[in-house]
């Protein structure tokens, strides 16, 4: 594991990946990845096409089960846990190719993510087992019946969902589109909506897969400010994949560089920029030069 000089170990570790490895048939897509994220950090994950970046996201969120290695989130081993539970534990993500619920309205997209508020019993049980003093024993509630019978309990939550969704949309500047179909939004706002939807699950760790893809210079600049802004406001720890080097260098505190599933460099932007291996890996791929 590559260590960064001068970084204090006392900081709270939100995510820790140890020897993370996954094989698809003969292909080792990710090979012994080691890394960590401290609370509040904004970390970049870069590398050429097919390096295994998205695959790492898919392992963290439980879509893929690693062949080998462990994922620790806030001190809890979450390796191989189902995606919906990783979400309930506080990991949210966006997708490289936008995956909105395109037939649903902008507001409904956000509110769909808020359904997780009613579904987090198993996650709360895991948290309670991990640390009974901090996380009280959860009580299972028959939310399905409450929802169908429209009990006052449920109606209260529904109202909360609606107002929180409106607040989020206002926060990201999409409130004027609230009742529009998600597919009717222009590209930039769709990206923002995907982030807003992820935020609606109330995450502590946000994984962004190429948020700036397909954006022009000004849009990218706006996105940069936007990410900084939500990071503060929602006290997030962020891991982001991005091909836009300027963007990554500007925003990230540390960067992991991946090539053919292996880490080839890790450090602060300055170190990465001048790293020989990194330059080599990107050489020949003119889009990054």
């Amino acid at each position: 594991m590559i260590k960064i000089k001068g970084k204090d170990a006392a900081k709270k570790e939100v995510l820790k990946l140890e020897n993370l490895t996954i094989r698809f048939g003969g292909l080792t897509a990710v090979d012994s990845f080691n890394g960590y994220l401290n609370k509040g950090e904004l970390i970049g994950l870069i590398g050429p096409n097919g390096a295994g970046k998205t695959t790492i996201f898919n392992m963290i969120t439980g879509i893929y089960k690693p062949t080998f290695g462990t994922i620790t989130f806030n001190g809890i081993n979450i390796t191989g846990i189902k995606p919906q539970i990783t979400t309930h534990l506080g990991i949210a993500r966006t997708f490289q190719n936008i995956r909105l619920f395109s037939e649903m309205s902008v507001l409904e997209n956000v509110m769909t993510a808020e359904h997780s508020w009613l579904q987090n019993y198993k996650a709360k049980k895991i948290l309670h087992a991990h640390n009974p003093s901090e996380f009280p024993k959860p009580h299972w509630k028959p939310w399905f019946w409450s929802a169908v019978l429209k009990t006052p309990d449920y109606l209260k939550v529904e109202r909360k969902m609606k107002s929180y969704a409106h607040d989020l949309l206002k926060e990201v500047g999409l409130d004027k589109y609230a009742h529009l179909k998600a597919s009717a939004l222009p590209y930039g706002p769709q990206r923002k909506l995907e982030i807003a939807r992820a935020l609606a699950t109330k995450p502590s760790l946000l994984l962004l897969d190429e948020p700036a893809a397909g954006m022009n210079g000004q849009e990218t600049q706006e996105l940069l400010e936007f990410i900084e802004n939500i990071r503060e406001k929602f006290s997030l720890t962020i891991l982001l994949i991005e091909h836009d080097m300027k963007f990554v260098m500007k925003i990230c505190e540390r960067i992991y560089v991946l090539d053919y599933g292996k880490i080839i460099a890790h450090g602060v932007p300055k170190e990465i920029q001048s790293d020989k291996k990194v330059i080599e890996a990107y050489l020949g791929d003119e889009s990054y030069v």
Partner: peptide, 9 residues
């Protein structure tokens, strides 16, 4: 896939 990522079983 997106639904799972939003916490839906």
């Amino acid at each position: 896939v997106a639904a799972r990522a939003m916490g839906i079983d």
